[in-house]
């Protein structure tokens, strides 16, 4: 190539280089922020699960008696049953609106595990159902204890939170 041609091409090459660097840098940046968003979203999921557990276990509608609580998440078994009845009562539809800020658009159920043999003595108790029907969902699990007043015992329990998949 002649020197003149090279010189003429110089600005074009510079432009191309700038564009290339910009493209690569932006792709990197977008990937990073997208993954940050996903991380944040999923960390939020986990944090959300814990937050939902904490809020649920401190609601007067679900909390264990204060003399029971040792500052850890504890839900009263009979109250959980009552909530399930209430949630399934079609005349109480307005209730969901009231508890929506606590639970969000999720289905929340609690399952007791008998530590003697690992069995579940009954089906999971659904304490809230606010998930839109037919959507894809992911389930987050978090662990806590349920207080049973007649035996004054605490049973190991799993809280299943079904949330719409992102």
């Amino acid at each position: 190539m002649r020197k003149g041609q090279l010189q003429a091409m110089e600005p074009i090459i510079v432009v191309i280089m700038i564009v290339l660097i910009a493209v690569v840098a932006l792709t990197y940046f977008v990937r990073l922020s997208k993954s940050e968003a996903t991380i944040m979203a999923s960390t939020m999921d986990s944090k959300d699960a814990l937050a939902i557990l904490q809020r649920a276990s401190t609601l007067p509608e679900l909390s264990c008696a204060l003399s029971e609580t040792q500052g850890t998440a504890c839900i009263d078994l009979y109250k959980a049953w009552f909530m399930e009845i209430l949630m399934n009562d079609p005349t109480q539809d307005m209730l969901k609106i009231r508890y929506q800020p606590i639970f969000g658009n999720t289905n929340v159920s609690v399952e007791i595990i008998k530590i003697e043999d690992g069995s579940s003595p009954f089906n999971p108790i659904q304490i809230y159902n606010g998930l839109a029907p037919g959507v894809d969902y992911t389930v987050t699990r978090t662990y806590f204890t349920i207080h049973e007043a007649t035996t004054d015992g605490r049973a190991f329990a799993i809280m299943h939170i079904a949330r719409e998949s992102r």
Binding site: V19, F29, K34, T38
Partner: peptide, 20 residues
């Protein structure tokens, strides 16, 4: 060119934004 590509990529990034 820079601006053009930036705009292109911003549209994609926003989808992640809404969720958080």
């Amino acid at each position: 060119f820079l601006v053009f590509f930036a705009m292109l990529f911003r549209t994609c990034a926003q989808i992640g934004d809404e969720q958080i």
